[in-house]
Design a protein around this nucleic acid. Sequence first.
DNA 1: CGCCTGAACGCATAATGATTTGTTCAGTTG
DNA 2: CAACTGAACAAATCATTATGCGTTCAGGCG
Lengths: 233, 233
Amino acid sequence: MSNGDRPANAAGVGEQKSGVDESGGKESEDGNKLPLGADALDPTALSILEAATQRFLHYGYSKTTMAEIARDCSMSTGNLYRYFPSKMDIAEAFVKTLLDDHVTTLRATIADGALPAEVRLRALLQETFRLNYNRFHDRPKAFQLSSELLSERRHIAVEWERIEEGLVAEILVDGVKAGVFEIDDVAAFANAVKSMVFRFTTPAIFLDDEFQALSADLDAVIDVILRAIATRD
Amino acid sequence: MSNGDRPANAAGVGEQKSGVDESGGKESEDGNKLPLGADALDPTALSILEAATQRFLHYGYSKTTMAEIARDCSMSTGNLYRYFPSKMDIAEAFVKTLLDDHVTTLRATIADGALPAEVRLRALLQETFRLNYNRFHDRPKAFQLSSELLSERRHIAVEWERIEEGLVAEILVDGVKAGVFEIDDVAAFANAVKSMVFRFTTPAIFLDDEFQALSADLDAVIDVILRAIATRD
DNA sequence: CGCCTGAACGCATAATGATTTGTTCAGTTG
DNA sequence: CAACTGAACAAATCATTATGCGTTCAGGCG
C-alpha cells in the first residue's frame, strides 16, 4: 500500500472491481453532446487503448493477453495497471468508443430538423437497427466483446439506452410541436417504442435472419407506431 | 437390420435424426383444435412419457438417463427405442404437451366472443406473456428443456408461432367485422404485433426484471397497437 | 413371430493435472 | 519522487485421461 502514484485521471473508469453495488458514479454535468468515453485520456493510456483495440478486433478479448498489449506498447505488464485498473476496464474504454461512434452516427442521421418528424423517426430506428446488425455481422469479435461487457457492467448499457431513448423523445417532441404527432406522455411513449423495436436491437436473435426481411418487419412496426400517434383530422 | 418391428405409430415423432433438411412432414389436415402432441400414443409410450416427464421436471434433461426412465417403467433401455427413436424425441413429446397446454389456456382466455375485441386482444397478449414468465420462473427445468429443444427443432417453434399468430389474427378479424378495428392486411398486422411483443415472449431477457414492470410495459405497447387500429370517427 | 433383454460400442461429458495469464508489489531508474 | 520493471502468486484455462451414457443389435422368451 505504498504507491499512491497514478497519472492524473487514470483512465476515467474508476468503478468498483467486482462488487455489486450501484452507486451513481460521476454524473458528467457537461452536456450530453460530448463523447462519453476515451476523452481526456493520458497519451500513454491512449496508446494502450489503441494497441488493445487492434488485438481485440483481430483476436477477441480472451485471446488477447496483457503481456501482448504491454509488448506492443514497449512497456511492462505492471505499468498497464497504472493506466487501467484491469483488463476489463480496457475493454470498457474500447466499447465506450464503439457506442460513442454509434451515437455520433445517429445524431448525424436525424440532424436535419427540416425533415418531417415521421421521416426522422423512421430513419433513426432503421439506422439503429442497421448499426446493430453490422456490428454483429461484420465485426463479430467487437460484437461479442461488447455484449459480454454490457451484460457484466450494466450501467453502461443503461446509460446507452437512456441516450437512445432521448434521441427518440427529441424527435417526438419536435413532431408534437409541429402538430403532426399527438402524444400525452412523450417519455412514456419513447419507452414503449423501445419495447416495440426490441427485436431489432437484440442481435442474439437475428443470427440467421436476413437483413432485408428484418428491415421490412421493422418498417411495418414503425408504420403502426406512426399510425398510433398521427394527428387525426 | 433384422427387426423391422415397431408398434403402430411409434410416438408420432418420426423426423430425421440429425440431418438439416426441412421437408414439410405430415400436414395434419384434421383442423387445428386438436392437440398437436401426445395424441394417439401407445399406452406403453404414454407411461414412458410420464416417467420421463417427472424426471425432466425434477432433474432436467441432461441429468435424466435412459436407464432411469427404463427402470421407472420396469423395462430395459433397449425397449425404450421401440417407442421413441431417441431421448430427444421423448423430450419433444414432453414439450409438445407443454405447448399444447399453453394453446388450450390461450383459447380459453379469448373464448368469450361477446367481449370487445380490444379486451380480448389485450387478454391474449398478457396471458401469453404470463405463461412464458411462469414457465421461466416456476419451472426452470421445463423452460430450459423447451428452449433448447425449440432452438434445435425449429419446425416446432415455427408451428407454435403460427398458431399464436392465428389466434391474434382471429381477434383482429372479429374486431374488423364488428367495426371497431380498421386494418388493411390482417395477416401482416398480426405479424407486426408479433414483432412488437417480442420482448415479452423472449424469456432469455426478463431474467431479473419484475413481472409487474414488464406487464405494465406490455400494456403500454398494447395501448399503442390499439390506438393504431382504432376506427376514427 | 412379435416383444423384449442386456451386453457392447463409440461418443460426449467430467475429472485430473499442467500451463498460462491477470494482477500485485517490492524494488530500480533517472 | 514520479515513472516504470519484472518476479511471484492465485486463479483461470487448456490438454489429457477416465468415466458415464445414449444407442445398437444379436439373441432369448412365450
